[in-house]
Computed example of a mutant assay.
Amino acid sequence: MMSEASRERIRTPEGWRAAAAMYDSYRNETSVPLPGIASYHPAVELRPGLTAAIAVPEGEGPFPVFVITHGPGLTAGSSHLYRRLTMDVAGNGYLAITPDFRLAPEHPFPAGYDDMRFALGWARDRAAEWGGDGARIVLWGDALGASLALGLVLGMRDEPDAPALKAFVGVEGVYDFTSPMLANGSSIKWYPGDGGESVLRDKRVSPLLHIEKGMQLPHLLLITGNANYGVPGTLDLVRKLQDSDLPFELHALPGMPHDFMTFPELDGMRHGHRLLFESLARTV
């Protein structure tokens, strides 16, 4: 059981980031062999102040592009923490890009959103330099990164020249910052900054609140384990999509904990990745 002192530490940005970093070995330093890829570049400058990790597949392109919006909480995490996932994606034939968007509370909304929006435009316009096809972009988000990613899907609908997305992948997401699930979390205080209720209800922050019938959306693929605290957030989005008569694909893997899609040692991760890439093969 976590001590009160430990709880207090993770209520600070530094403590929360240190706790997230403790999962590095589970995500990255495993006995599961790395996939075959052509190259991995840990810090490619997209613009001053914004870098991304890029993994290039083996073989001849052009490859579809897979942009990763990392978790956790929009206040911690990095492309370094997601380096194995980035390489696993490239191992499945996608040009994988994991941007290091700015984190709250030092950089509250819309800083992280703006960085990810720029990264998507960069992917469309510059992916060919890396063997990618900027007309075939998949956008992934996990945990609260999924909220940011789906917020991008909705936010870009207002832009006539926005990058076109073939698919959205939401993994164990929470898509509503007004949800009671987040009421006591640090992200609810740090990410919106001083914007208050208007930011919490913005379509780029709480996209679930803005799902409507008749929306033209990319293929929506939702993945969760059924043994983690992200399940209610995924089911909230499922109900909203059903009520809005919008199509989606859902996979709930038995017994899988939070973050399982980034833990190579788990059979459930490998199963989840098979489902992921089989779905994308039909739609991208």
Rank of each mutant, 00 (worst) to 15 (best):
F101T: 00
K189F: 11
A252G: 13
D267L: 14
P108K: 12
E8Q: 15
G49A: 03
G15A: 05
E249I: 00
A53L: 00
L246D: 08
L200N: 04
Q216I: 12
P257N: 06
D115K: 06
K240Q: 15
V138Y: 03
E265I: 06
M215P: 03
M181E: 14
L85I: 03
G214W: 12
Y94S: 13
I223N: 04
D245H: 15
D245F: 09
A96L: 01
L148F: 03
A135W: 03
I223Q: 12
L246N: 01
P218S: 13
E129H: 14
I211W: 14
P72A: 11
G61V: 04
H41A: 06
Q242G: 07
L266V: 07
P99G: 01
L139T: 02
G225M: 01
P232A: 04
L266R: 12
A162D: 06
R83G: 00
F109C: 13
R11M: 14
P33F: 00
M22A: 14
T224G: 13
L266G: 11
S79N: 10
T283H: 13
E278Q: 14
A20W: 07
G196P: 00
V153K: 07
H210W: 11
S25V: 08
H251G: 10
G73K: 02
A227D: 14
A52Q: 03
L85M: 10
D202M: 07
L253E: 08
S198F: 01
G112C: 07
S147W: 08
H210M: 10
S3N: 02
G272S: 14
E249T: 14
L250A: 10
D24S: 05
P99I: 00
L182F: 11
H80I: 05
A167C: 01
R27N: 11
F177R: 00
E58K: 13
M2K: 13
I54A: 09
A123Y: 08
G170W: 02
F248L: 07
S179M: 01
S244G: 13
E129V: 08
A18R: 08
D125L: 06
R17W: 06
L81W: 04
Y94Q: 10
G196K: 02
S147N: 04
A227W: 02
R27F: 15
G193P: 09
D100P: 05
D236W: 12
Y94M: 07
V205K: 09
H41S: 11
G170L: 04
I37N: 10
P33D: 03
L253F: 14
E265D: 15
D176G: 05
G36K: 14
L120P: 03
S3T: 15
A18V: 06
V153Y: 08
A5W: 03
R11N: 15
A162G: 08
R47H: 04
